[in-house]
């Protein structure tokens, strides 16, 4: 049985803080746990904090996109916060643009983003 990441609840928002590099099994567990928690707590938003991650491989990148897709189906929005510049560059070079995932610079801005009513972006 491998470790599981704790999922914290703030109001109707779920918070996952990734503090260390993830093994593949933990990534899969997280996906499963989040789906369960969203339903159990009828959450409206999910915030995934990856500010401590220095390396994000394509597997983790895909996980982020998958979690976003799952939560969208369950009527919750996902915001990935705190991505480092080096990580962003790596993901772009890998060709992963995480379409459909909202992002924010830090946790505070991420929570603010979830509180905003969904509106089409200004142009």
């Amino acid at each position: 049985m491998s470790e599981r990441l704790p999922i914290l609840r703030i109001g109707d928002i779920l918070l996952v803080s990734v503090q260390f590099d993830l093994e593949d099994q933990m990534v899969l567990n997280l996906q499963e746990d989040l789906a369960n928690e969203i339903v159990a707590k009828s959450a409206r938003g999910v915030v995934i904090d990856i500010s401590a991650l220095e390396i994000v491989d394509s597997f983790v990148g895909r996980m982020l996109a998958t979690v976003a897709a799952i939560s969208r189906v369950l009527d919750a929005r996902t915001v990935v916060v705190g991505m480092r510049p080096a990580v962003a560059i790596t993901l772009v070079e890998l060709g992963l643009s995480l379409g459909g995932v909202s992002t924010a610079l830090d946790l505070e801005k991420g929570l603010a983003k979830l509180r905003q009513p969904t509106s089409s972006a200004l142009r």
């Binding site: 990935v80 991505m83 480092r84 990580v87 962003a88 772009v92 995480l98 992002t103």
Partner: peptide, 13 residues
């Protein structure tokens, strides 16, 4: 485009 996508990944427009 790459620069813009990377900035977007970090949560900036």
């Amino acid at each position: 485009l790459k620069t813009i996508v990377a900035a977007r990944l970090m949560g900036a427009e």
